[in-house]
């Protein structure tokens, strides 16, 4: 199959200017030049891709994009994928940009006076496969970039959604956000119990308003945490139980033998009262009009 490219590097390098011109005007016609990408960026990337493709072919690069000869081409494709993804192009649109290079190259090949039909067919097939690979590579790049983003966000989510905060002296709150799996619940609960000791807090409010669902294991972890806190000499209040979660708990036959309150505010008020404190609204004196 490597033979299929033999005349291609020549063809492309000789006609590089024409090719680029044809490709660009083709992209203009099909509306590839749109408001989302700057014209000079598109021009530069098109030129860069064509140049690198050409020099890779001239260097006799094998039919495998992972080869070192293709590293410059890969780099420009990564750049193309990166800029386009950040501009909101779909992976398919980005790949289509690469695929659109086929038409001008084929036109060039067909215009050749060479009448060796069999050889021409081979070349067409070869270039077809190659450009497909280039196009699909941009998709791969976009996908792995997206996976990186997801992994990073998951990590951030765990860090963000598990803070133990001190509401008042002796009263801690753990606002849980997002789906709880049993592993994460365990870690979060251990942290909470540690904080009870270090801050010598007698009350902990576990708020699950931000938790969409609770399965059996997670519900059991919650109950175990409440029991463990009691053994240590602290009381837990669970707040923000959604109706669906209440139903799950009852359907699962779990005895949620804990103090629960509708909202964190209610739970906080209870904790304050239990620690001998109260909150009252100051009645403004009618004479004192100033704020």
């Amino acid at each position: 199959m490597a033979n299929a490219y033999i005349s291609l590097p020549e063809l492309i390098s000789k006609n590089q200017t024409t090719l680029l011109h044809d490709w660009i005007s083709l992209q203009r016609q099909t509306g590839a030049f749109n408001r989302r990408i700057k014209e000079e960026v598109l021009l530069e990337q098109s030129r860069g891709l064509l140049t690198e493709l050409c020099s890779a072919l001239q260097a006799g690069a094998p039919n495998d994009l992972k080869a070192t000869e293709w590293s410059a081409t890969r780099k420009i494709l990564e750049e193309v994928s990166g800029t386009r993804t950040s501009l909101g192009f779909t992976p398919a649109e980005t790949a289509t940009f690469v695929f659109s290079l086929k038409e001008p190259i084929f036109n060039l090949l067909f215009a050749k006076t060479d009448s060796n039909v069999e050889k021409q067919q081979q070349e067409i097939w070869g270039i077809n496969l190659l450009i497909d690979k280039l196009g699909l590579y941009t998709t791969e790049v976009a996908q792995s970039a997206r996976e990186n983003v997801i992994a990073r966000q998951q990590q951030e989510l765990i860090e963000l959604s598990t803070p133990v905060v001190e509401l008042w002296e002796g009263i801690l709150a753990l606002p849980l956000i997002g789906t709880l799996d049993s592993e994460r619940t365990q870690v979060v609960m251990e942290n909470l119990l540690e904080r009870l000791v270090t801050s010598s807090a007698e009350f902990a409010i576990i708020d699950i308003t931000g938790v969409p669902t609770v399965d059996t294991l997670v519900a059991q972890h919650l109950i175990k945490t409440v029991s463990a806190a009691r053994l240590m000499g602290a009381d837990c209040i669970i707040s923000g139980i959604r109706p669906q979660i209440a139903q799950t708990i009852v359907h699962l036959g779990l005895e949620l033998n804990v103090v629960s309150k509708a909202t964190m505010a209610d739970a906080f008020a209870l904790a304050l009262r239990r620690t001998g404190r109260s909150v009252e609204k100051r009645v403004a004196s009618p004479k004192n009009g100033s704020l």
Binding site: E190, L196, V197, E202, K224, L231, M232, G233
Partner: peptide, 29 residues
Amino acid sequence: VGMRPAVAITLVELGLNLPGVRTALDVDK
């Protein structure tokens, strides 16, 4: 008083909730 978190977690897992025992975080409390 003063049961460590790891001990409390383990006791609960063991199935021992010590219902008859009152608890506090430290000697003062």
